[in-house]
């Protein structure tokens, strides 16, 4: 579960104020905004990089400001994936997977399943820079699911990807929900939002202006939503 209560983040552009959000287990939520910085501030808070805020941010009912216990790997039970492709192009896929295997704590059998599904043997000696972006995103997404994380945050992860990837992504989100995971998706894509989220929130200048269910959103004119909430 991802929960934000009365969040105030001053001296940042945009300032975030009176921000409440709750993504229950087994639910997906899409937060729409045209302001990338607002998303970045939230991600900084979830990553424990930004600590100078007021309010309460919880992951699985635990305050994000509580210190980690020593030696615990990713105690927040949270994974973050973005659309960026800023990965070291010369790093070998195999080296990265080995590293992930070492630190993720996932079972060997699960890895073998992924290896077969994504045909990783074929590309393991390749460098990341040599892989098509779609393939690399598939690998990343599959790997992070191995850990059995309970909470997922995406930032435009499906943006710019072909139809088949988006379809596969949506299916996986449904499966994650079934498994009781909380999914928070940051985006400015009004078309994709009701496809992915059970609920959709509209954020403008650091404030949550409106929240709709995906069914309600599908009934409203997208054009109207865009001009009212997203356009600057």
């Amino acid at each position: 579960m991802i929960k934000i209560e009365k969040l105030f983040l001053k001296k940042r552009i945009p300032e975030i104020s009176e921000f409440d959000l709750c993504v229950a287990n087994g639910e997906s939520y899409v937060l729409l905004s045209s302001d990338d910085n607002a998303f970045n501030h939230l991600i900084n808070i979830f990553s424990r990089i930004e600590k100078n805020f007021k309010g309460r941010v919880e992951i699985d009912s635990e305050n994000i400001l509580e210190p980690h216990s020593k030696g615990e790997i990713n105690p927040d039970n949270l994974v973050f994936l973005s659309n960026g492709n800023q990965w070291p192009p010369d790093l070998k896929v195999k080296d990265w997977i080995d590293f992930f295997k070492k630190y993720s704590g996932a079972a060997e059998e699960e890895f073998e399943e992924i290896y077969i599904k994504l045909n990783i043997d074929r590309i393991s000696s390749c460098k990341i820079g040599e892989l098509p972006e779609i393939e690399w995103r598939r690998i990343l997404f599959s790997l992070v699911q191995l850990n059995g994380f309970g909470n997922y945050i995406f930032k435009d992860f499906a943006k710019g990807m072909p139809f088949d990837f988006n379809l596969e992504f949506k299916k996986t989100i449904q499966r994650l929900k079934k498994n009781g995971c909380a999914v928070l998706y940051f985006s400015n894509d009004v078309f994709l939002a009701p496809e992915i989220g059970d609920r959709v929130g509209f954020m403008k200048k650091g404030k949550l202006l409106l929240e709709l269910t995906s069914t309600a959103m599908k009934k409203i004119s997208i054009k109207e939503i865009y001009f009212q909430f997203l356009a600057e």
């Binding site: 990553s47 424990r48 990089i49 980690h68 790997i73 990713n74 949270l78 994974v79 973050f80 994936l81 973005s82 960026g84 492709n85 800023q86 990965w87 070291p88 790093l91 590293f99 992930f100 630190y103 993720s104 990343l140």
Partner: peptide, 16 residues
Amino acid sequence: LIHKDYLRFTGNLVGF
């Protein structure tokens, strides 16, 4: 430090 996606991912995995 220029490959930010890698750093974010790895940082979340092992700690920043």
